[in-house]
Amino acid sequence: MNIENFLHSRRGAATTRTLLTAGFTRRMLTNAVRDGRVTRLHRGVYTSRRADPDVVAAFRADGLLTCVSAARFYRLWTLGDPGSLHLSCSTGQARRGVVHHGACLHPAHSYLPVAGVADVLIHSLRCLPELEALVMVQSAVSQALLSTDFLRSKLPGNRNGKVREIVGWVLPRADSLLEVLAHTHFTRAGLRVRMHVDVPGVGEVDCLIEDCLIVELDGGTHLEGKQVKKDQYRNNAGILGGLMTLHYYYADVVHHPQRMVGEVLVVLRNRETGRFGPFRYIAGRPPS
C-alpha cells in the first residue's frame, strides 16, 4: 500500500508515528511531500489532498473531535448539522468558530483525533439540547458501545442530575431515532406507551398507546409501493382487532412533535367520549 492509500484509510491524515509504525520510512515521507502527493500539515502530521476537513482541523488544533462533531465516526444518530466544530484541546486555547469541551478521561479513537465514545456522550449531554443528546446516547446503547449504567456511573453528584435524567429516557431497544423521540414525547404527555409490541394478526408495531392506539413511525422505505400495501393491510388487521392506527414520519416526530402528540390526544379523547362507540347495523339499512 502506498502512502496516499494508507492516508485515505485514515480519513486522509496520520501522524508520523502512525506512518512509521505502518512501515513507511522518513525518506518515503520526504519524497511524497516533495512530489506533492501528501502535505506536511505541521510537525508530526501528514495529510492527503482529500483529507477529512474536521480531522485536519483537530490535528491542527492538537485536539480531539468530540460531542456532535464526533458522532459520525461512531455512527451515532444526530438531529442535524453540527454547525461549529466541537473539540477537546490539550492546550485549552480558545479558537474562533470552535465549541470547546473539557478534558477527555477515557481512551481516544485508535487512530483518529476523535475522543472515545464515553467522552463524546458525556460532552454531548452537557452541551446539546436534551433531545439531541438523547438520540446520540440511544444510538450508542443500541449499538452496544456502552451501557446506561456505565454512563450514569460517570455522571455522579447533583450537578449531573439533569443529564442523568436524559439517560433515563434511553430505551432498551430502539431501531431508529424516531422511536426514542416519540416515546419521550408521548410519555411526557402522560400517556402509557409500550414499544415493539407484538399484536396478534398485525405483527410487531412501533408503539401501542393506552393499549388501544397503534402508532407507526415510518421511514423512507414505507413510501415504496409494496410497503404501502403491506402497511394498509396491517392497518386493516389492527382495526379488525379493535385497534386504531396512526402513522407519523420524520418531519412529524422531529419538527412537529406537539402537533403529533395533540392528534394522538384527540383520538384518545374521541374514543373515551364514545365517538368511536358501537352502532347497530341492519342489513340493507345505513346506520342511524
Results as ranks from 00 to 15, higher is better:
182 A>D: 03
190 G>E: 13
203 G>M: 10
177 L>A: 11
214 I>N: 06
207 C>W: 00
188 R>E: 04
198 D>S: 08
207 C>K: 01
181 L>N: 05
185 H>Q: 14
185 H>W: 15
221 T>S: 15
197 V>A: 09
195 M>I: 12
212 C>K: 13
216 E>D: 08
206 D>W: 04
185 H>V: 01
182 A>T: 15
173 R>V: 15
217 L>W: 07
204 E>F: 06
177 L>P: 00
219 G>F: 09
176 S>C: 05
184 T>Q: 07
203 G>L: 08
217 L>G: 10
186 F>T: 00
198 D>A: 13
196 H>Y: 15
200 P>D: 09
203 G>I: 11
197 V>L: 02
191 L>P: 07
197 V>S: 02
175 D>W: 04
175 D>E: 11
188 R>T: 01
218 D>H: 12
199 V>N: 01
198 D>P: 01
199 V>K: 03
200 P>R: 06
181 L>C: 10
172 P>T: 14
176 S>T: 04
198 D>H: 12
174 A>I: 03
177 L>M: 10
222 H>D: 15
214 I>A: 05
186 F>Y: 15
172 P>G: 12
190 G>S: 13
220 G>C: 00
199 V>E: 00
217 L>V: 10
184 T>S: 10
190 G>V: 11
198 D>Q: 14
221 T>K: 13
176 S>Y: 03
201 G>Y: 05
207 C>G: 00
178 L>W: 05
201 G>D: 07
212 C>E: 13
190 G>H: 13
175 D>G: 13
183 H>I: 02
181 L>V: 04
189 A>E: 00
175 D>N: 11
213 L>T: 10
215 V>H: 03
180 V>Y: 07
214 I>H: 05
180 V>A: 07
190 G>F: 12
200 P>A: 11
224 E>L: 15
184 T>V: 14
224 E>V: 00
178 L>T: 07
183 H>G: 01
180 V>Q: 11
178 L>Y: 11
220 G>H: 14
210 E>F: 05
204 E>D: 04
201 G>P: 04
208 L>S: 04
224 E>Y: 10
202 V>E: 02
198 D>V: 14
188 R>I: 01
204 E>M: 11
205 V>Y: 03
182 A>H: 02
207 C>F: 15
222 H>I: 12
225 G>C: 02
180 V>W: 06
183 H>E: 14
180 V>M: 06
205 V>W: 03
196 H>K: 08
175 D>H: 14
196 H>E: 15
180 V>L: 09
184 T>C: 06
179 E>K: 13
193 V>N: 08
191 L>T: 08
202 V>S: 04
218 D>R: 07
208 L>H: 08
185 H>D: 00
187 T>P: 01
181 L>M: 14
175 D>L: 10
179 E>D: 15
205 V>L: 02
208 L>Q: 05
190 G>K: 10
198 D>F: 06
189 A>V: 04
189 A>R: 04
195 M>Y: 01
191 L>Y: 08
222 H>C: 14
210 E>T: 04
172 P>W: 11
178 L>S: 11
191 L>C: 08
223 L>Y: 11
186 F>A: 13
180 V>E: 09
191 L>E: 08
204 E>K: 12
223 L>V: 10
190 G>A: 12
183 H>K: 10
184 T>E: 08
184 T>I: 01
224 E>G: 04
201 G>N: 07
208 L>M: 11
179 E>V: 08
201 G>F: 06
206 D>F: 02
201 G>L: 10
